[in-house]
Amino acid sequence: MNQTRSTWREPMVWMLVGLPLASVAIGFALLFAAVRPGREDMDTITQATRVGKLLVSAQDEPSTEVATKGLVLRLKGDMIEAVPVDGDFPRGGKLRLTLRASDSQAAERSVELSPSELGWRGVGSLDGGHDWMVELSPDNAAWSLRGHWTAQARAIRLSP
């Protein structure tokens, strides 16, 4: 009695068909896991977002004006002024200017800039013999602009 078995009852058919199908399914599952952000990635994304040189904190929802505008920092006598490049720059509140000497021989300085008729102004001066790393942010730290103030420069532009 020669009875033939069904093709699907042969183990070799399952190895030839089933293993490649299983590897394709596992490949799609791995691709989905790699593309989809995980929980720890979402926490990092919500902490801070960088737009060019502008670091935007997640504490306050930044306005689109801050992400596209810039400021000019300039020395005027014994004052440091921050003047918006565009008149639509969001105004109000004080700004904190932090200056760090790039050669680390001079101490870190912090200047509080109060609102003025043109922008913000604070009492302070710079030693012209040092390059300075500059960070400017509002009191609520919703955004931060960073730049490099070279020695002997009278003004710099901070933009995203």
Rank of each mutant, 00 (worst) to 15 (best):
A82M: 03
T68L: 12
V56G: 05
Q3N: 11
P115K: 02
S23F: 09
K69P: 00
V13G: 01
L75R: 13
T7F: 12
G128H: 06
S63M: 09
I156T: 07
S125A: 13
Q3G: 15
E135V: 14
M79A: 07
S144G: 08
R9S: 15
G124K: 10
P90I: 02
L31A: 14
V111T: 08
D60V: 12
K94G: 11
K76R: 11
M1K: 08
L158K: 04
V56S: 12
W120A: 04
V24Y: 04
V72T: 15
L73C: 04
L97V: 09
R5W: 03
D60R: 13
A22Q: 04
A34W: 08
Q152T: 14
A155L: 07
A22C: 13
A82Q: 02
P20G: 10
M133Y: 06
A107Y: 00
V85A: 08
A142F: 00
Q3F: 11
S23Y: 03
V134H: 06
E81R: 14
D103V: 06
K69S: 12
A106F: 02
H148D: 12
F28K: 05
A22D: 05
G93P: 12
S102E: 14
V72M: 12
S23C: 09
T46K: 11
A82Y: 01
S63W: 02
F32M: 09
R74P: 00
S104W: 05
R154P: 04
M42W: 05
V72S: 04
A101S: 15
I26P: 00
I26K: 00
V72L: 07
Q152Y: 13
V111E: 03
A33F: 12
Q105H: 10
L126P: 02
G129V: 07
I156A: 10
R146V: 13
S137D: 11
L126H: 02
V111Q: 04
V111W: 02
D78G: 10
W132M: 09
P115Y: 01
R5E: 08
R157T: 15
F28D: 07
V111P: 03
I156Q: 06
A107S: 13
R39C: 00
P37T: 05
T46V: 14
Q59N: 12
S104G: 06
L31E: 08
A142S: 15
M42H: 05
E81D: 06
V72P: 02
V51S: 13
G38Q: 06
G77W: 00
A25S: 12
L19T: 14
G147D: 01
R5M: 04
M42G: 01
R5H: 07
L54W: 03
I45K: 07
L55S: 12
A155H: 05
P115Q: 03
A82P: 05
F32I: 10
A29G: 14
Q59E: 06
A58H: 14
E108Y: 01
R39E: 09
D139F: 10
L95S: 09
H148F: 15
M133R: 14
V72F: 00
L95Y: 03
D43R: 13
V35D: 03
G93H: 05
M133A: 15
W120L: 06
F89I: 09
M15T: 12
D127E: 08
W143N: 07
A106G: 04
D139P: 05
R39L: 09
M15W: 10
P20A: 11
K69A: 11
S137E: 15
S110R: 15
W132T: 14
V66H: 04
F28V: 13
R91E: 09
G92C: 08
L136G: 10
L118F: 04
S116V: 03
I80G: 01
A151S: 14
